[in-house]
Simulated assay, not measured.
Amino acid sequence: MDYQVAEEDIWAYQEYLVSEEHGKGTVEKYLRDIRSFFVWASGRMVGKRLAAAWKEHLVMEGYSTSTVNSMLSALNSFLEFMGWTQCRVKLLRIQRTPFRKQERDLQQKEYERLKRAAGRKGKERLTLLMETICGTGIRVSEVRYITVEAARGRKAEIFLKGKVRVILLPDKLCQKLLRYAKRLGISEGEIFVTRSGKGLSRQYIWQEMKKLCKDAHVEASKVYPHNLRHLFAKLFYRVSRDIVKLADVLGHSSVETTRIYLMDTGAEHARWLEQMGVV
């Protein structure tokens, strides 16, 4: 059976996502993907066949497998909300790769060069922000939980997706945060804010980090906030060798997700093969 969708259905779905306490970025992303589907559909009735055709269209357009699956997940979520579960389509199967792409693997020495570049440019806030993300493993959307109160208590309580987790803050980081806050006259609440007191947006942080690439001699493909979280994961695991603990710190519900963060570029694997001496 095929169905007709009205604009108010999409607005109702938006309200549903908000009521389910999805993050702002998630809501915007889902709505963007759903609207992309309906623009492509050009007023045609929605059914299993049309959804499958959109899946094929995305593949033919050259979208990556992960992008196609994320867009299909948004559509399936909307179809389920409407009660049209029989119209949902299967995601593309992904064969897991054991290695991380070289051009996206941020090394600790490159992270240090980024900090020095930020320092030379007089970007104290950006330097401290990068240290905070890389020193705690928080998501860029969780920066708002780094408050004066959290720095004083040496821990931050993060609320996301209906879950609460506690992040311990290193003493040295707390000292830097409190000194910075005091200098700017921030006595309570969020530390990383604009002059008007608003939290820093994901896009702003991303853009500011990109501006460091040339001066730091680091490939732009490696420089974005989430890669600092990946670097934290690698360094934490190198010290602890406890992937379960790491999953808790990162807020992952599955250790399989954490494994992705620990992928290397294959260079170490290649060294092991050479050391085997069987060729």
Rank of each mutant, 00 (worst) to 15 (best):
R49G: 11
L50E: 09
A51N: 09
A51S: 14
A52V: 13
A52K: 12
K55E: 07
E56L: 14
E61C: 15
S66W: 05
S66K: 14
S66L: 12
V68C: 12
V68F: 05
N69K: 02
S70R: 14
S70N: 14
S70H: 13
S70E: 12
M71P: 05
M71C: 12
L72M: 13
S73F: 09
S73N: 13
A74F: 07
A74G: 09
L75E: 07
L75G: 10
F78K: 10
L79E: 13
L79D: 13
W84P: 03
T85Y: 05
C87R: 04
C87S: 11
R88W: 03
R88Y: 03
V89I: 06
V89E: 04
V89G: 03
K90G: 05
L91D: 03
L92R: 11
L92N: 12
R93H: 07
P98N: 05
P98D: 07
F99S: 01
F99G: 00
F99N: 00
Q102R: 14
D105K: 05
D105L: 08
D105R: 03
L106C: 07
Q107S: 10
E110T: 11
R113I: 08
K115V: 15
R116C: 09
R116G: 08
A118C: 02
A118F: 01
R120L: 12
R120E: 10
K121A: 07
K123Q: 10
R125H: 00
L126N: 03
L126Y: 00
T127L: 12
L128T: 02
M130A: 06
M130R: 01
E131F: 01
E131W: 03
T132F: 02
I133A: 02
C134W: 02
G135P: 04
T136A: 04
I138M: 11
V140I: 15
E142S: 13
E142P: 10
E142A: 13
V143Q: 10
V143E: 09
V143S: 12
I146Y: 04
V148M: 03
E149D: 00
A150P: 00
A151V: 00
A151N: 01
A151I: 03
R152P: 04
G153V: 02
A156N: 04
E157H: 12
E157D: 09
I158M: 11
F159E: 15
F159Y: 15
G162P: 08
G162I: 09
K163S: 15
R165E: 04
R165D: 02
V166L: 08
V166F: 04
I167R: 02
L168V: 11
D171C: 05
D171H: 08
K172E: 12
